[in-house]
Amino acid sequence: MLVDAHAHLLPRDYPADAPECFPRMEPVDGDTARTLVFGAMRFTARDAFFDAERRIQEQDASGVDVEVLSPMPPLLKYDLPAGDGLSLARWVNEATAQLCAAVPDRLKGLGMVPMQDPDAATAELKAIKDQGLLGVEIASNVLGKSIGHEQFLPFFTEVERLGLSVFVHAMPSPSERLPMSAMGTYVVGVEGAFAAGSMVTGGTAKACPDLRISFSHAAGGFPLMLPRAQYFWGGSWNEEPVDLTRAVMHDDGPSPVELARRFWYDSMVFDRRALRFLVDYLGADRLLVGSDFPAMLREDPAGRTLRTLDLPPEDLADVMSGNAFRWLGIDHP
């Protein structure tokens, strides 16, 4: 079995009387695709984004058994007025629930919340769970503030209490440290690292030990930062015993690596050597299959590079599906 834990959806339409700041989906002449119009953004969305039958055809063609569907990341637009952001989230969540209900054994859904208003986002989590959605997708930063900031701790505490999952998708910050042309490349790596790093340094990972959280694109550069963080914490190389004579930033633990091994990371890193490092350093139980489908084409077949790692069968089964079900908090079928 193969579970694609990083796949996206778009609603087919939005309300005719929606606020002007809402997205629109415009028809494409002679095609089943539709054009997403959201502010300055124009994106042609093929029908797999919003048609359940088409999604299943695409799954079967690439060897995928289950998809975890999260909103297309541009919908996580936190500069909307808070009330409009909540209305948009509710519309997208309803569309997600309906899409997944069409084929519930093949489609599992994550909702979205208006993180620009942490109190409203927290209050909305119960409704998301009641809709049958298994968690939420959030962006790696909220108007430039990393998700590990103490302002968002009550949100994550409630996520943990309700037994929901979190998927963090790397998104650019308003500071524009890198040009928008680098959004799909370097920004993903930088912002993913900021998000995961902030969950460790801000104390959320320690405060919420049962939080089930995953990061898109393996949290970018975060895994390669961990050995340095581990050295500063424990004063040793290669996770050897702690040497407090060398430690610079020691506390009572858990260590940075122990905290990082509470997270999950998707496999969209494009190179078997990167995947091997993730498995060797973080563990085969921390890795999920991810594709960014249908915004990007899947590897053909899905999971092809993972299968070249010669993992023990039980580890490969975990990466392909077992870890995803544990992250989602549901039984493996």
Rank of each mutant, 00 (worst) to 15 (best):
M1T: 10
M1D: 08
L2V: 12
L2H: 11
V3E: 02
H6I: 09
D13F: 04
A16G: 13
A18L: 07
E20F: 02
F22H: 07
P23L: 11
R24Q: 10
D29Y: 12
G30D: 10
T32C: 10
F38V: 02
A40R: 07
M41K: 14
R42L: 13
T44M: 13
A45M: 12
R46Q: 13
F50S: 00
F50Q: 07
A52I: 09
R54Q: 10
R54N: 10
Q57A: 15
E58G: 05
D60K: 12
D65Y: 03
V68A: 01
L69D: 08
S70H: 06
L75H: 07
Y78K: 04
L80V: 00
D84H: 09
L88P: 08
A89M: 07
R90F: 01
W91N: 04
A95K: 05
L99Y: 01
A101R: 12
A102F: 03
R106P: 11
G109T: 10
L110P: 08
L110K: 11
G111N: 05
M112R: 03
P114W: 04
D117T: 04
T122A: 12
A123Y: 05
K126S: 14
Q131M: 15
G135Y: 09
V136I: 15
I138G: 02
I138E: 04
A139E: 08
N141M: 11
G144M: 02
K145F: 00
K145A: 12
I147Y: 10
I147M: 02
H149V: 00
E150V: 08
F152A: 02
P154L: 01
F155I: 03
T157M: 01
E158Q: 15
E160F: 10
L162R: 06
L162N: 08
S165K: 01
V166F: 03
F167I: 01
H169C: 10
H169V: 09
P174T: 09
E176T: 10
R177I: 11
L178D: 02
P179S: 14
A182L: 00
G184Q: 05
T185P: 00
V188K: 01
E191H: 04
G197C: 02
T201V: 14
G202M: 08
T204K: 02
A207S: 15
I213Q: 07
S214C: 15
F215I: 06
F215R: 13
H217N: 12
A219R: 10
A219E: 03
G221T: 14
P223H: 13
M225H: 08
L226M: 10
P227W: 06
A229S: 11
Y231I: 05
S236M: 02
W237D: 04
N238Q: 11
P241T: 09
L244G: 00
R246W: 01
G253H: 04
P254G: 02
E258W: 12
E258N: 04
A260N: 12
D266K: 07
M268V: 15
R272K: 15
R273F: 12
L275N: 05
F277C: 03
F277I: 06
Y281N: 02
Y281F: 15
G283H: 11
D285P: 05
V289S: 02
D292W: 08
M296N: 13
E299V: 14
T308I: 00
T308N: 00
L311A: 06
L311R: 14
P313Q: 14
E314T: 14
A317V: 05
M320S: 13
G322L: 14
G322Y: 06
N323F: 05
F325L: 03
W327I: 05
G329Y: 12
P333Y: 09
